[in-house]
Structure formats: C-alpha cells, structure tokens
C-alpha cells in the first residue's frame, strides 16, 4: 500500500558515511532517512517501511557550520561499575574533550517521498495491512507522530504532511548522477548492522529507489 509524504525543513544533514567526522551531507535525502520519517509517524514490529521514490522539490543548496562537539561517548563500562558499587566518577568534561567539527549541510529542503509498507513475520493474527494503513493516514493527516521526524540529525526537525500528488509542487527540473549512495542498514544481524548502497540517479528531480532485494542494492 503506497503513501506519499511531503516533508520540508530549514536544514538537513544526510551524512555520507565516508565523511562523517567532519560531516558532509549527500545531495538529497537517503532512503534510510526517509524511512525513519515514516517510522516516526507510525511503526510497529508487524510492519516494515520501504521507500519507492523520492522527488526533490527545492533546488539543492548548501551551508557550512562548525560546532564544538565531544570527542568521546558515554562509557558503558564505567557506568556499569558505578552502578554496581554505588559510587564513582561519571561525566565527561566538555572543555577537556572538545573538538571543533564542521558540517556541510543542506538548506531549505523539500521532498515528496513515496513509501509503502509490508507486513513482517512478527505480525499477529489481529494485525492487518488495512488497519495500519488507516492508522498511518489518520496520524499523518492530523500531524500526529511518535516523535518529531527530522532530516538526518535531530536538530533539523521537519514538517510533514500527507501529500496529494496531483496538486503538489513539481519536482525540480534537474538531472544529476548522485553516485553511490547509502540505501539503508541491514539489520538482519542486530549486533553488526551492515550498510547497503545503490547507484542513485536523479531524473527530472525524481529518484527511483530500487527494492531492497534487487540486484541494484549492494552491501
């Protein structure tokens, strides 16, 4: 069952995995970030979202931004020890572990994203596609969401609305070879998610997204 969302935001950063220390965004939203937007509105273990097409509605624009960030993440081990012993020093000192990192962000983005869901094996007997379709449509129409969806990073929240394809703004008139792009992560082994890639092409502002099991998607 297909759905179409129009999403827009002031900034976006769909980080290229090969340039993630000083983040550089892809030119357009990745299928995996697009999937996360659908999931922010509705997701249950019984369903799985697939992105089928992305339409780029605004010209691709860039902006550079540098921020102070932390060098390390919270330590699982010291948290565990402190929890067991009931005392200990936790915490990261911002001025000792500061890093200045630049991000190359997208500006003023707007996309029309086409997605559909399939039922997974976790679906129970009471679950039906029609039920979830109704639920999704209802939520998207009312602006309801599980958490506010975002464009790659949480500080770049986005507006979303159920789109009417016929009345919507046209996609930009531009062709672009986007090269190899992250498709999504393969979570079949949850302890070691592995990335999948595909060759993305924008034709007249439209990017067709192949199915996950097709030959075009490679690990």
């Amino acid at each position: 069952m297909g759905f179409c969302l129009e999403v827009s935001g002031e900034f976006a950063c769909f980080t290229r995995p090969e340039m993630k220390v000083e983040r550089v965004s892809y030119d357009v939203i990745t299928p995996s970030a697009a999937r996360a937007i659908f999931e922010a509105i509705l997701w249950k273990p019984a369903i799985e979202w697939h992105i089928t097409e992305i339409e780029v509605l605004n010209p691709i624009k860039w902006m550079n931004l540098r921020r102070n960030e932390m060098e390390s993440i919270a330590s699982f081990r010291s948290a565990k020890t402190a929890m067991k012993e009931g005392s200990g020093l936790l915490g990261i000192y911002a001025d000792e572990q500061r890093q200045q990192r630049a991000s190359l962000l997208l500006k003023d983005v707007r996309y029309r994203i086409h997605g559909e869901f399939t039922m997974t094996e976790k679906a129970g007997p009471e679950d039906s596609a029609a039920k979830f379709a109704d639920m999704f449509r209802r939520r998207a129409k009312k602006g309801q969401c599980f958490n506010q969806p975002y464009l790659g990073c949480r500080e770049f929240s986005c507006d979303f609305a159920l789109a009417d394809e016929e009345d919507g703004a046209p996609a930009i008139n531009e062709d672009r070879d986007l090269g190899f792009m992250l498709y999504d992560l393969d979570y079949s082994d949850p302890s070691a998610p592995s990335p999948l890639f595909f060759r993305a092409r924008m034709d007249n502002g439209r990017i067709a997204i192949p199915a996950k099991d097709s030959e075009e998607v490679r690990g």
Binding site: A74, G86, S87, G88, L89, I92, Y93, A94, D95
Partner: peptide, 16 residues
C-alpha cells in the same frame, strides 16, 4: 553527564 568544569566540584565522589 556532560559537564563544564566551572559548575562542579570535581573531587566529590558521587554515591549512587
């Protein structure tokens, strides 16, 4: 968790 030195007493051992 993410502290700035100015606001805390470093030597304190926290009891959890």
């Amino acid at each position: 968790y993410i502290k700035e030195k100015a606001v805390l007493n470093r030597s304190n051992q926290r009891a959890y």
